[in-house]
């Protein structure tokens, strides 16, 4: 078990290194750099532009720039935002906390809804199965920004007592904070819950045909014991896998949902940073988001080993 965790950690570091390189190069592959974008339509002398580039270190060879940035990043220094001239870490952290919270709530909603509907559809079959699959197919076809817009419209028009665009910081009022995130989290969670639901359904159906389930029933065990220890414990592995993979979808979707619900998270910030070519900020956000996805999937792998002894070897 310990060897597995260490191996996974090493793998995680390798992936993040790769991601940081790709993020660095991709940002610089965008047409127009920060200096040019700042100048905008104004006619600025080229030697002024060059001086600005030299000041920001953008005149050096790409690889050298990358290594300098990486060296600092490893020590926790992600540099200064080109736009605000403030340390990137201080800029991102409060926004990251908001996005993280939104993603976490959305993830929990998605898991609860997905496992519940998937399980109901697989166990009850018949009409319940029909309804769930119809609903899943429908939601899968609707992008989350449409769902978010619809929620804003419907709640705004018919339930004016519910405040939609009312973000409260967690430490001001924790309950209001979570309450305010519920609707955005729901619109973010719907599509993901459908993926989890479909996978839960397939996994439970697959497991229920296995011989050991028949053996469990032949033992005279109570239905809830058969369900929990024989059906769900075996179906859990594929369910955990998709849930882990969907974290990336949630993070990506949060950018749109934050914009629609006016939540001060990383989404809007990332969008602005890309527009202004604020390289240090973009790199840090991409790296942070990848780190979350990779780390979540590392925990998924460790969870396997906890669920299924065979995965340890």
């Amino acid at each position: 078990m310990r060897r597995m965790v260490i191996a996974r950690l090493a793998w995680t570091v390798a992936i993040l290194l790769g991601v940081s390189f790709v993020a660095f190069m991709l940002v610089r592959a965008l047409p127009g750099d920060f200096v040019q974008t700042s100048a905008g339509a104004q006619n600025v002398a080229s030697d002024v532009l060059e001086a600005a580039r030299r000041e920001l270190g953008l005149d050096r060879p790409l690889l050298e720039q990358y290594l300098i940035w990486l060296g600092n990043a490893v020590r926790g220094d992600f540099g200064y935002s080109f736009v605000t001239r403030q340390p990137v870490v201080g800029e991102i952290l409060p926004r990251f906390v908001v996005t993280f919270q939104l993603t976490l709530i959305a993830g929990l909603i998605a898991m609860a809804m997905g496992v519940a509907t998937g399980l109901a559809s697989a166990r009850l079959r018949g009409r319940a199965d029909w309804i769930v699959r119809l609903y899943n197919g429908f939601i899968l076809a609707v992008p989350n920004f449409v769902v978010a817009t619809l929620i804003v419209l419907v709640v705004g028009l018919y339930f004016p007592q519910i405040a939609i665009f009312n973000y409260t910081p967690f430490f001001t009022d924790p309950l209001a904070n979570i309450g305010g995130l519920l609707l955005p989290a729901l619109s973010l969670a719907l599509a993901v819950s459908v993926t989890i639901s479909e996978n839960t359904r397939a996994a439970v159906l697959e497991v229920s045909g296995q011989d050991f389930v028949m053996v469990a029933r032949a033992k005279g065990l109570l239905p809830r014991t058969v369900l929990a220890n024989y059906l769900m414990r075996n179906a859990l592995t594929p369910i955990v896998t998709v849930t882990g993979l969907q974290v990336a979808t949630l993070l990506g979707g949060s950018i749109l949902v934050e914009t629609i619900f006016a939540i001060p998270g990383m989404g809007q910030y990332l969008f602005d940073s890309i527009t202004s070519r604020d390289y240090p900020v973009i790199q840090a956000i991409v790296l942070l988001a990848s780190a979350v996805v990779v780390i979540v999937n590392m925990f998924v792998d460790i969870a396997y080993a906890r669920i299924d002894a065979r995965a340890q070897s």
């Binding site: 050991f212 053996v215 032949a218 033992k219 220890n229 414990r233």
Partner: peptide
């Protein structure tokens, strides 16, 4: 359910698939 396993028990054909792989 009180009779199954308690008063009438059964051994199945394929031992490779009759045990729950995730339980000791």
């Amino acid at each position: 359910r009180d009779i199954r396993g308690r008063r009438i028990a059964m051994v199945f054909q394929d031992p490779m698939t009759s045990l729950n792989p995730v339980m000791s």
